[in-house]
Design a protein around this nucleic acid. Structure first.
Lengths: 344, 344
DNA sequence: CGCGAAAATGAAAACGTTTACATTTTTATT
DNA sequence: AATAAAAATGTAAACGTTTTCATTTTCGCG
């Protein structure tokens, strides 16, 4: 029994070259710089490649010129409406650049992230996109040592420590709270995850709280509720809150939480927006369909995903101008039916 | 200005070898077969690698032995609760095997799938997982020529044309309908996507219809409604249906559709399950929280994802026993609050 | 101590491309 | 038609590992 050798009998560039009656170099050029080969030769090569079922081996090229044509994407999770839209858009746009996507998730565990990034680096990805700004120092150092461009996606800050493309989560949080305040609400509860490694949630929460303060409201601890991005837990937390001492309005850390809150209201027979107003952040799939239709801050996940893909391809081109140092993608307030002035 | 050369100054295996005072071969062995090197040497090497910040280049290894340590996963989309759980579990389990995931989506377009698989093959993935059984012949031929193992995931059939791991979607459809029939419903509407390339949905639909037939019900065309896996569209379709001529029960092609149906009922003030019973298929995140809590057939996405990851790693080991020819993962009927006997 | 076997290591040849450079062919210009 | 310049192609040397085979070191045991 021999070793695994040439993938069974799959032909290489030299077989194609032989069949087309040219040198391997010419075949290579047909794929990489087609304009540099005579149309006639080109078609002979194409025909030979087709006949042989040739599929080039990018690993060989990668070895030679350090470009793999793949980029890495590291997200906390995709098992959640939060990121799936972003990832989907990113993946699709990447394909238009003939670039493949290596993806990995770490469940908000930054230790895992280190291992993941190392693994991506071993595969010589051309660039990597990470969600948010909170990262292990080791992660960042490795990336730097290997001089692999990094792009932080999803969140945006004026003073971001990394090139980034995303929405201003602080402002989004402000916006959500401001809407409620403008309607006249004074007793507002905030349901946000507190996870320290989640800077997006942190920014939103700070933004919302800042808005409340600005309006002269000092929220007691009982109005600041810790809640993960999980619909079941959100529903449970909201039911506890509502059956004890319902506020007149609730700001949810994202639409998943808002959805849980809405279900809690239904379960308890609390009218929305009659008795309680609810705002979300994100505008996920389904937020426009839920009853009552959810008022929320739309974070343009697809736009971010697409721009990020374009940017990362540009960055990985070895381009010295690591282009989009920072790009803020605007969000939008979407008013629907889950908010109204407080009962007097 | 030179070409891109050795990634800036990132050290290679020979630098590590020099620093540790051993040959490159020994360094290589430290990573691949640590037991074959003396503990003392091993630690010297580890130390040198650490000091230099060495990250091995798998492309080089791939070139040599045809194993990349990456597998491909091709799904229609991840922008949807349907697959995100599956993909997430698959990705996580793969990491436990120190294997990376190349992912791509084709939006139910089998032409795209061909291009995607070619692109994955160029990166020399060790195996590839595809969703379902419907694939372009070219796709399958390429895979065969390159002798790359394929695993079909998500759906299961006794006579599947490919090794597969998944749930029996036909039986799941039967189960959903049977529950309604057992409750005494005779006027049932079916909301399913009809997309020809979606064998999972097709199987479910056939299963549900078969169950109805078996009960002596011959559903008129007006009860067979075409509906994509999209919550907004499902809601719209359901509103049209309910406001015209409401059936006593609805089988939804999956939980996303069911969710839309439930929202439609709320929007119209149709009591569930009082006036209309609704069953879903899938048991997605949120189906247990929605009001009324959705009765559904739980398809164990995470279990499938995990098993599929294990299986594909086993298959890519060059193992001649392409192990799990077919593996059926059982589903489970989850009865909650959206179903009841018909009003008399 | 010495011997043979086993374990650890080293030397060097792959692996399948890409690309700088050399060479040949084509084209444009006179 | 001759020639210079441009375009097309070929030659061969990388790229950074892994692995076979050969060599050296270590070990067990008489």
């Amino acid at each position: 029994m021999r070793r695994s050798r040439s993938r069974k009998g799959a032909p290489g560039i030299v077989e194609v070259a032989r069949r087309a009656g040219v040198s391997p170099a010419t075949v290579s050029r047909c794929f990489n710089t087609p304009d540099s080969v005579k149309p006639d030769t080109r078609s002979r090569v194409a025909q030979a490649a087709e006949a042989l079922g040739y599929i080039r081996n990018r690993a060989a090229g990668t070895l030679h010129n350090q470009m793999s044509g793949s980029v890495g994407l590291v997200v906390p999770t995709i098992d959640n409406a939060i990121f799936s839209e972003l990832v989907d858009a990113f993946a699709k746009q990447l394909r238009t650049h003939d670039c493949t996507l290596l993806i990995a998730t770490h469940d908000y565990d930054l230790e895992q992230e280190v291992a993941i990034v190392r693994s991506l680096l071993e595969r010589r990805i051309d660039a990597v996109a990470l969600v948010g700004f909170e990262h292990n120092a080791v992660t960042l150092r490795m990336l730097d040592t290997q001089s692999v461009p990094v792009l932080s996606i999803w969140n945006y800050r004026d003073n971001a420590p990394l090139p980034c493309i995303g929405a201003n989560n602080f402002a989004a949080g402000e916006k959500a709270a401001d809407h409620l305040l403008a309607l006249g609400h004074r007793d507002i509860a905030f349901l946000f995850p507190s996870d320290g490694s989640n800077d997006r949630a942190g920014d939103r929460r700070h933004g919302a709280l800042r808005a409340a303060e600005r309006a002269g409201i000092n929220s007691p601890a009982s109005r600041l509720i810790d809640c993960p991005y999980d619909i079941d837990q959100a529903k449970a937390r909201a039911m506890a809150l509502l059956s004890r001492d319902a506020p007149s309005a609730i700001v949810a850390g994202n639409d998943v939480i808002a959805q849980g809150v809405l279900y809690a209201c239904q379960a308890l027979g609390v009218p929305v927006p009659g008795r309680v107003s609810v705002v979300g952040i994100g505008d996920f799939r389904g937020s426009a369909a839920i009853e009552p239709r959810l008022s929320t801050v739309r974070l343009p996940a697809r736009t971010i995903g697409r721009s990020a893909a374009d940017a990362i391809v540009a960055m990985s081109g070895g381009n010295p101008f690591r282009l989009p140092s920072r790009q803020e993608v605007p969000f939008e307030w979407i008013e629907r039916d889950s908010t109204a002035p407080p009962r007097v």
